[in-house]
C-alpha cells in the first residue's frame, strides 16, 4: 500500500505559543484514521498547519504527500497535490456562487476546463444525495448558510474535488445528529481503495457508522497513543485522563 501522508516531528506555533510539539503521522491509501484528544491539544491546528495556514508557523519537521515534500508549499499547491480539508467555520464569500466556486476549484485542481453540463449534472446528483436544498448551489458561498448547510457544502466540495486524502475537522459540530449523518454519508460516497480519510474529532459518535483503521490520541501537541477502532470506545468510557497522566509519567 502506498504512503500518502507522512508527517515527521512537526512543530508549530501560533504567535509565541507552541501548539504542535513534534507530531508524527503516516497515512496510507485505503485507510481511515481518526485523531482524538482533549480540548486544546492541537487537533484543529494540525489540519491548518499541514495546509500552511498563514496564521500558524511551522517551526520544525516535515510534511510529505504522495512522495513530495509539501512542508513549505503554497496553500493552493497543497490542494492541487491532492489534499482536502473541511473547515469548521467556512468563510462566507459574497457574490460568488457555490456552483461557480466549485467548478473553478475543480478546474484548477484537475488543470483542465470543466464541461459545464457534465459538471452540473454530477454536482446536482451529489447535492441530492447529501439532501441539499435545490437552490443551495446557486446561492452565495456560505453566505447565510445554517451550520448544517455549511457542513453539507464542505462535504459536497470534497466529493467534487475528489482528493487523495480528505481531512475532516469535526471538532466543532461533531455532536450534531444531522451533521454526523452528512459526514458519514459523504465519506461513504467518497471512500475507495485508492484514497484516505483523516477525521479529527472529540466525539465518538461519528465513528460508529464508519470502518476505522487507526485511532490516534493527541495530547499536548503530540500523538501519545495509537490503537484500533476499539480505542475510541475506551475513550468514550474513560476519557483522556489515562493518556494525559501517562504522558506526564513518561
Amino acid at each position: 500500500m502506498k504512503t500518502l501522508l507522512k508527517v515527521k516531528s512537526l512543530k508549530a506555533k501560533v504567535g509565541e505559543k507552541e501548539i504542535l510539539k513534534g507530531l508524527n503521522l503516516e497515512i496510507k491509501e485505503g485507510e481511515v484514521h481518526v485523531i482524538m484528544g482533549p480540548n486544546g491539544a492541537g487537533k484543529s491546528t494540525l489540519a491548518n498547519v499541514i495546509f500552511n495556514n498563514p496564521q500558524f508557523q511551522k517551526t520544525a519537521g516535515s510534511v510529505f504527500f504522495d512522495g513530495k515534500d509539501i512542508t513549505n508549499a503554497k496553500v493552493d499547491e497543497i490542494a492541487k497535490s491532492g489534499i482536502f480539508m473541511s473547515f469548521q467555520t467556512p468563510e462566507e464569500i459574497s457574490g460568488v456562487s457555490v456552483f461557480n466556486f466549485i467548478k473553478t476549484a475543480k478546474g484548477k485542481i484537475e488543470n483542465k476546463n470543466i464541461n459545464y453540463f457534465d459538471f452540473k449534472e454530477e454536482m446536482q446528483k451529489n447535492a441530492k444525495a447529501l439532501k441539499m436544498k435545490g437552490d443551495l448551489v446557486n446561492r452565495e458561498l456560505n453566505v447565510g448558510f445554517s451550520g448544517g448547510e455549511k457542513k453539507k457544502n464542505e462535504i459536497l466540495q470534497m466529493l467534487e474535488l475528489s482528493p487523495k486524502l480528505a481531512i475532516l475537522d469535526e471538532t466543532d459540530s461533531g455532536l450534531d445528529v444531522d451533521a454526523i449523518k452528512t459526514v458519514s454519508k459523504g465519506i461513504e460516497m467518497f471512500k475507495t481503495e485508492k484514497n484516505a480519510v483523516l477525521i479529527i474529532t472529540h466525539s465518538c459518535k461519528i465513528l460508529q457508522a464508519l470502518k476505522v483503521d487507526f485511532v490516534h490520541i493527541l495530547v499536548d501537541g503530540k500523538i501519545v497513543y495509537t490503537g484500533n477502532a476499539s480505542l475510541a470506545k475506551e475513550i468514550e468510557e474513560n476519557g483522556y485522563e489515562k493518556f494525559e497522566a501517562g504522558k506526564k509519567n513518561a
Binding site: P54, A79, F87, E91, I93, F101, K108, I109
Partner: peptide, 16 residues
C-alpha cells in the same frame, strides 16, 4: 486573509 486561505485550500492561487 481567512477568505483567501479558504479559497486557496480549494486549489485557487492567491491571485485567483
Amino acid at each position: 486573509e481567512k477568505a483567501i486561505f479558504y479559497l486557496m485550500s480549494r486549489g485557487l492561487s492567491e491571485e485567483d
